[in-house]
Design a protein around this nucleic acid. Sequence first.
DNA 1: CTTGACCCTCACGCTGCGTGAGGCCGCACG
DNA 2: CGTGCGGCCTCACGCAGCGTGAGGGTCAAG
Lengths: 245, 245
Amino acid sequence: MAALARVTVRALHHYDEIGLVQPSGRSEAGYRLYDEGDLERLQQVLFYRELGFALDDIGELMASPDFERGTALREQRRLLEEQGERLRAMIEAVDAAIAAHQGGYRMNDQEMFEVFGDFNPREFGAEAEERWGDTVPFKQSRERAKDYRKEDWLRITAEAGAINESFAEALDAGVAATSERAMGLAEDHRQHIVRWFYDCSPELHRNLAEMYIGDDRFAATFEAVRPGLAQYVHDAVVANAAARG
Amino acid sequence: MAALARVTVRALHHYDEIGLVQPSGRSEAGYRLYDEGDLERLQQVLFYRELGFALDDIGELMASPDFERGTALREQRRLLEEQGERLRAMIEAVDAAIAAHQGGYRMNDQEMFEVFGDFNPREFGAEAEERWGDTVPFKQSRERAKDYRKEDWLRITAEAGAINESFAEALDAGVAATSERAMGLAEDHRQHIVRWFYDCSPELHRNLAEMYIGDDRFAATFEAVRPGLAQYVHDAVVANAAARG
DNA sequence: CTTGACCCTCACGCTGCGTGAGGCCGCACG
DNA sequence: CGTGCGGCCTCACGCAGCGTGAGGGTCAAG
């Protein structure tokens, strides 16, 4: 009957159930009868629906005075923008994944496992993309990393492992994190990043170190080498950054 | 225990339930025990999840050979792009609504009802925005329409009503839709559009007429004046377009 | 009188978990 | 040794917005 308004019958029932648009009458047979006013209301509901509003919100909106709608519209715009952001991030991540997949000849899954062991870069890539995707260092890093082959990664991880091991030895030996020796290792660590990934200033390096202790996942990779290593490296890096500040 | 992987316990339970990531063992107390392999798998799941894949799809993906993933990734990209399109359309529509709302002093809801009666432009605005939002005529129309005030709309609708009424009289009088008289009215109709909305070529006019009979909602506004009027106007417009082709 | 096209009322299903409720572990503290 | 406290466990309902039958009445046309 009235489903020419471009909505399914089920939707009308639903709106009726939740009280959003209720027919002003019923026929003897129980058919829903919508009068002009009902249709007017329905059209408004559909209008707001196409703007992405939730049905609940539409109900409130239509019960509230005109001036609230402007606020609601701007709020809705903000929400949609947010969604757009998330979508963009996803698309970027998918693109990165596609690139990585095509570049699979450079390093496939199995090799990746051989190289990184249990630290699979994929587990972190998407989040990193979202958090730092548009910062200069990250872009630089991504740009340079995409051409690295298996041998490169082996070398890089070997170097990183060596640095960590040196840190661990210093820790074992009771050398203070603020000592020259520890600071030297911190500097090595920074140079390693500069050489292979991005221009890491002492300042940036310190932020990175904050994350080593602040983020359990990073911390775990250090703790796996030696308990307390995450904190130790952090302290050394901070000391080194202060010395070079 | 293992919720340091940035996922809630409930999510782990869920993945277990649907068989996406199942712990390889249980402790005596019934605790889920995830080994290295399980964690590896979990990370992959989380990775794809961040790319916006549905959990079902992730399951299939991970069970399929490597070369399928490239396809899946591209497909996913397409889907995300589509969502992006929809979002953009929504945002545009919201913007239009905000503009209309701010321009409310030009014409508020009540006046709008007085002018348009049961044809509320809002009921169609969003869809129109989506279908033709980036065509030249639509933009032109929107641009010009936004400054019209109540008086303008009254005049415009009065003119349109007069034209429809003339069509209806011709129809009543049994005048053929392909006659000079009907074609003249069709031309008046076209000029009315050109004057108030956009540069409507005879060709474009014909497309519009197709919609008058193809879309129930448009048809209904004509049928409300006289049964058969939609078809009649359509035929007259087509004839006129052919004559001026 | 019979079709076929609509309408009606339940009522479950989908996505991806969140959020208790009610209860068992395990470790630290007193 | 008891007693918290924080973690895990298993149900099981809830959410948003309808889609999709199942089972059955209604209405105008043939």
